[in-house]
Amino acid sequence: MLKKRPHLLWLLAPYGLHLVALPLVDRLRPTVLGLPFLFFWILVATLLTPAAVFLAWRGDRKRGRA
């Protein structure tokens, strides 16, 4: 499946953002907009998750039309 639809790898991006990156982001400072860094990072990751799924979907759309 991944050979035909390599763009599905984007679906693993949330794992990278939320889990793999954790050792780097488990910190209080710097605070961003007042938010402790860890909470800021998870918020960013939460907002990037739909973007990652969108990229997978866009890949499928291109294939569907081709």
Partner: peptide
């Protein structure tokens, strides 16, 4: 925060 992390990851793989 684990609640947010697992839901985000789970919803993403739900695509497949």
């Amino acid at each position: 925060l684990y609640v947010i992390a697992y839901m985000s990851c789970g919803y993403a793989i739900g695509y497949v």
